[in-house]
């Protein structure tokens, strides 16, 4: 006799997707952070390791699939969030004349839409800064320690090789694609204090978003009990502080270290 098919047009289903994509993006943050922490390795070896990692990330088919899942999650999370925000506003057309929301809820929990919008703008600019430049621009290429011989993507140095359109040429013969130098793009970007400040602000927004979002995701999916929820709550706070903090230290470190 059940005439209602819950999965169609329900606020709750939108919340499930919000939670599911959000928690997936938390996993993405961990992976992204683990990769980026290599930027803390000093000297040529750090530069080489990071650029080898960049080759892996841009060529591995499994990573490719994951990257599309991530892009989709970000877009879905944003659009779903917008739809939910509109429904939120619609449910209270006339505001209170006097309200003290701080007495019963944290600021983050009431401003996820604003924080999300800031983060979306951050992601677009971040992608333009690195991903777009590396993929569609003419990025610098990686050389062997002599500073002259270009490196192939597998790390082989080509003595006397020259780089043309991203390919290493030796005596007119194509030796293969050159290893791009994403490390230098990152290093040069973070010499600009405005960009450094922008990245730090972006991470603060992500931190506040996570303070509420992490544990809220579990609640939306109904994953709550007396034993584990206090742990999830504490883990959420730790995640919201540690992950954005480590991310934010990268531009600061590169600005100071260079």
């Amino acid at each position: 006799m059940s005439e209602s098919k819950g999965l169609i047009k329900s606020h709750l289903v939108k919340k499930y997707w919000m939670a599911f994509t959000g928690l997936f993006l938390c996993l993405f943050l961990v992976g992204h952070l683990a990769g980026n922490l290599q930027l803390f390795i000093p000297g040529y070896s750090g530069q080489l390791q990071f650029n080898e990692y960049a080759v892996f990330m841009t060529t591995n088919p499994l990573i490719k699939i994951m990257s599309y899942v991530t892009y989709f999650s970000i877009l879905f999370h944003a659009v779903d969030g917008l739809v939910i925000s509109i429904a939120n506003k619609k449910a209270r057309p006339e505001k209170y004349a006097y309200s003290k929301p701080g007495n019963n809820s944290i600021w983050s929990s009431r401003n996820m839409g604003i924080l999300g919008t800031v983060i979306l703008v951050y992601i677009v600019i971040h992608m333009q800064n690195f991903w777009y430049k590396f993929k569609f621009g003419t990025p610098p290429h990686m050389t062997a320690e002599d500073g002259v011989s270009p490196l192939l993507q597998d790390g082989t140095a080509v003595k006397g090789g020259i780089v043309e359109n991203g390919e290493v040429m030796l005596n007119g013969e194509n030796m293969g694609a050159v290893m791009g130098d994403l490390y230098t793009i990152v290093l040069e970007s973070f010499q600009n204090p405005i960009i450094v400040a922008f990245y730090v602000l972006g991470m603060i927004a992500i931190g506040f978003h996570l303070v509420h979002g992490f544990q809220s995701g579990f609640q939306s999916l109904g994953l709550r009990n007396k034993k584990y929820t206090p742990i999830v709550s504490k883990l959420g706070y730790a995640f919201a502080v540690i992950v954005p903090l480590l991310f934010a230290l990268i531009p600061i470190y590169m600005f100071i270290a260079a």
Binding site: K15, N88, A91, Q219
Partner: peptide, 13 residues
């Protein structure tokens, strides 16, 4: 016409 839940916890308080 009630809105979605944002898990702010204001209701419980």
């Amino acid at each position: 016409g009630f809105g979605p839940c944002s898990n702010t916890g204001a209701c419980e308080v």
